[in-house]
Design a protein around this nucleic acid. Structure first.
Length: 547
RNA sequence: GGCGGCUUGGCCAAGCGGUAAGGCGACGGCCUGCAAAGCCGUUAUUCUCCAGUUCAAAUCUGGAAGCCGCCUCCA
């Protein structure tokens, strides 16, 4: 008689084991300010647009977050068997890239190509799924000019001293996305209005006339309004239209972009096509730096304000932490990805030494569990020879009655536990992701699972016949870990210690282990500890059992 | 000045009307020659504060305080 651990629900309805084909994904839609059910425009397909980087310097943590959040979305949509078309624009023609290239004495494309490569390298390191396309602004200038023309024809844009501006007074329903009230904003808070000749200070730039140096370098478009360059707002609006059409599914970006950028993208679209470009808007929150990343390293430095100003590290701002810099400081990209995912995307994420250390320790714990599973699966589980020996000698610690009970009841019950564990993991993962990507629920679930697995492994004699935890169990658990890792990309399934066989095949390591065993048997602790340190420095961890 | 967001243990972080998930850290125990890892146990009568609604509030309502983002440069 076995006890069903879950009241038997999954035995009654096997369909619970599989996800339904229709989408039940719920996401927070910024424009509606609530969590809504996601339904793609075209059955089975999803179009996603993410505001890309300006390629004048390497990515900073706020950008990492934007792309890792978009990655989580795209990977999950694919996990749910939807075909994803992800477009990320690249701003390679703006004030910063032009100034940067001038400073470096390079052509614009020489300059931006370097940073485009860096951008893609960083994304790869952070295990971000490659987008379907990365259209460059400089390759889409015609579509921008065409879009601007349409706006002029429809009365939404006007020319003033060779620049083109969007006429906000022509659009009645401006502000729906960000909720701004045009009558109450403080105009000129971040812009020097003297630089512009707009009819109304609220109007925003579509095409900006270029200066003489840009004209000489040919970094401009010749239009009927003059030699100009597209504004950021026009860039994104034109690229979404030319690559995804007048309307697409999901527009993602960071909170900072909501106003004015995304609001203006909507305005351009409304003016040109009468439609809002994206049906769903997803915004991730900002990243903040708490100044602790170099704590300890410079503890000897006196922290008076004068010293702080002199020490470049104390002055470090969030945007100075490039991926390379973080890696130079010893943080692995996987740890950075884990940190980026560890906070819900709509909450502020803090970059701190503690946060990264937490990520590291959590991943270590996960890796150890996965490492053990891999070894069990491969039949090379090596928890110290002693433990295995001990176990094989210790078995008859039970009465005949116990053995009888075990052979009949316990195995069945424990097997069900493994199935239950896998079911809970898969089901819990889908449920949490469907509920606006409740990633913290998933991490809680994973670590709960790890503890359960450790307990099973601990209490089990690992061999072919183990009813509690054997090769097949390990393989099944690894399979489900693999499955959810297609989305999360945080597991490490290629650990060096993947097989103890690898160590044991190394004569040197085998010899050291054997030597250490002899030393331990002779109670020569000094020698034993010395060998242990040596093995550790070679990346081999020994876990002792009883002598 | 406007709009929006946040405030839960030492730290991170769930919870969204039914009596505080999970992780890290710390402490105690098991295991060990000692460690490490793992396991077990302890670690918030209480959720920024004050009122209110309710049989019942961290969760709803009203008010206060603190912190943060954005306000048509750039992305």
């Amino acid at each position: 008689m076995a006890i069903l651990p879950d009241s038997g629900e999954r035995y009654l309805s096997t369909s619970l084991f599989k996800f339904k084909d229709n989408i039940t994904l719920n996401i927070f839609n910024t424009i509606e300010r609530k969590i809504v059910k996601f339904e793609p425009l075209v059955q089975g397909k999803v179009s996603v647009y993410t505001c890309g980087p300006t390629v004048h310097r390497p990515l900073d943590p706020a950008l990492f977050r934007r792309f890792v959040c978009a990655d989580l979305l795209c990977r999950y949509l694919e996990y749910r068997k939807l075909s994803v078309n992800h477009v990320v624009n690249i701003t390679d023609m703006d004030d910063k890239t032009i100034q940067g290239s001038e400073k470096e004495g390079e052509t614009l494309s020489e300059f931006t190509d370097k940073y485009i490569k860096l951008f893609k390298d960083d994304l790869k390191l952070l295990r971000v799924r490659e987008a379907q396309s990365y259209p460059k602004v400089s390759d889409n200038l015609d579509s921008m000019v065409n879009l601007a023309s349409t706006l002029v024809e429809k009365g939404f844009a006007y020319e003033k001293l060779n620049s083109l501006y969007f006429n906000l007074s022509a659009l009645s329903d401006y502000g729906e996305l960000s909720g701004v009230d045009l009558d109450k904003i403080r105009v000129g808070a971040t812009v020097d209005l003297d630089d512009y000749e707009k009819d109304h200070p609220r109007d925003f730039t579509l095409l900006k006339r270029v200066g003489l140096s840009e004209l000489k370098r040919g970094v401009c478009i010749n239009t009927k309004w003059g030699n100009v360059r597209p504004s950021l707002h026009l860039q994104c609006a034109a690229i979404t239209q030319s690559s995804l059409g007048e309307q697409f599914d999901i527009h993602t970006g960071s909170r900072e972009l909501l106003f004015p950028h995304h609001e203006n993208e909507v305005a351009i679209s409304l003016g040109a096509t009468g439609k809002s470009p994206a049906r769903y808007w997803m915004h991730c929150e900002s990243v903040q730096y708490d100044g602790t990343l170099f704590e300890g390293e410079f503890s000897n430095i006196n922290t008076s304000s004068e010293t702080e100003n002199k020490n470049p590290f104390f002055a470090d701002k969030l945007e100075n932490f490039t991926l390379k810099k973080l890696m130079d400081m010893g943080w692995r990209p996987r740890e950075i990805r884990f940190w980026l995912l560890s906070t819900h995307y709509r909450k502020i994420l803090v970059l701190s030494k503690k946060a990264l250390l937490d990520a590291r320790r959590s991943l270590d714990k996960l890796d150890r569990c996965v490492g053990a599973l891999l070894e069990i699966k491969n039949g090379t589980y090596f928890n110290g020879d002693n433990k295995l020996n001990k176990d094989s000698h210790d078995t008859p610690n039970q009465t005949d009655k116990d053995l009888q009970l075990n052979s009949i009841e316990q195995p069945l019950e424990i097997n069900i536990d493994i199935e239950q564990l896998i079911y809970d993991l898969k089901h819990g993962f889908g449920q949490a992701m469907d509920d606006d990507f409740k990633i913290t629920d998933i991490f809680a679930l994973i670590f709960k699972t790890v503890r359960t697995l450790n307990r099973m492994i601990d209490n089990s004699k690992i061999d072919e016949n183990s009813h509690i935890f054997n090769k097949n169990h390990a393989a099944s658990v690894l399979e489900i870990f693999h499955e959810i890792d297609h989305v999360l990309q945080i597991f490490n399934f290629n650990q060096d210690r993947e097989t103890s066989a690898l160590w044991l095949s190394s004569p040197e390591i085998k010899k050291l282990i054997d030597e250490r065993e002899v030393a331990r048997k002779n109670k020569d602790w000094e020698e034993s500890d010395r060998i242990r340190d040596k093995l550790l420095s070679m990346g081999v961890e020994v876990h002792d059992g009883k002598i």
